[in-house]
């Protein structure tokens, strides 16, 4: 992956309104940010602050009411269905709070699935899936189905699936939300290690304060707006004070 652009993600005045009967909910209300390559970023805020909406917009999973999202300097609103599918398959890896693995497929098959869509040869698919699952510590659980794995293990499979196509960015929506304290910490550390190793940009939407320790920057979101942007050092100084 060449470092052609400094920013992996840019948003311009990004907004999403939901009309619910007489009320218009401004889930996201004019967010302009730049996210650097290989940055480990956390978007923090109380529930309902617009974290998940931001996640969906940046991931190309939903269309914004206003504003633009650029991934690798490409405006994703300009992509047709075919190009958008390619963006989701190749450029972005998704991690969800509820893991969202395909229940009838084994860990191996879940991890190979994104490579089916990017047209990787069968042998190569199996090799890379095995390598990736071993990397996240599930080398012994290749043929287990999600139902036979613990929450932490399922999230590891999801991480392997998100990273197996070497995406530009990994988007994680509350990746530790369904995990206990200890397992959550393991997942956070795993994400950080992969971020350093593979130079992949990781964007977490979370309210798990454990994330602060590993994040390069933190975006504080409130009522659909960026309240402030802090680096880890700034947060640490504040804690001392």
């Amino acid at each position: 992956m060449s470092l052609r652009y400094e920013y992996a993600v840019e948003t311009e005045d990004l907004a999403k309104y939901y009309v619910m009967g007489p009320v218009t909910v401004r889930a996201l209300d004019g967010v302009s940010v730049k996210i650097r390559r290989s940055e480990y970023l956390s978007i923090m805020g109380p529930s309902g602050s617009g974290k998940t909406t931001f996640f969906n917009m940046v991931g190309g999973l939903d269309r914004p009411t206003r504003g633009k999202v650029f991934i690798d300097e490409v405006d994703i609103a300009s992509l047709d269905a075919y190009e958008l599918a390619w963006l989701r398959a190749k450029k972005i890896g998704y991690i969800f709070q509820t893991f969202n693995l395909i229940p009838v497929l084994t860990a191996m098959e879940n991890v190979t699935l994104p490579m089916v869509f990017t047209g990787v040869e069968r042998e190569e698919r199996l090799r890379r899936a095995r390598e990736m699952l071993t990397r996240v510590g599930l080398g012994e659980r290749l043929d287990h189905k999600p139902g036979e794995l613990s929450g932490g293990q399922q999230q590891r499979v999801a991480i392997a699936r998100a990273l197996v196509n070497d995406p530009v960015i990994v988007l994680a929506d509350e990746p530790t939300g369904n995990l206990d304290l200890h397992t959550g910490l393991e997942i956070i550390n795993l994400l950080k290690t992969l971020n350093t190793e593979k130079k992949v940009t990781i964007i977490n939407a979370t309210h798990d304060l454990k994330m602060i320790d590993v994040s390069d920057r933190i975006f504080w979101l409130r009522d659909g707006k960026i309240e402030r942007i802090e680096t880890r050092a700034e947060v640490a100084v504040k804690e001392v004070e």
Binding site: G59, A81, R88, Y94, N100, L113, P114
Partner: peptide, 14 residues
């Protein structure tokens, strides 16, 4: 439905 949503995130088209 959930499985379909996941497949679409992984690159499946309509």
């Amino acid at each position: 439905y959930k499985e379909i949503g996941t497949m679409k995130c992984l690159g499946a088209m309509n």
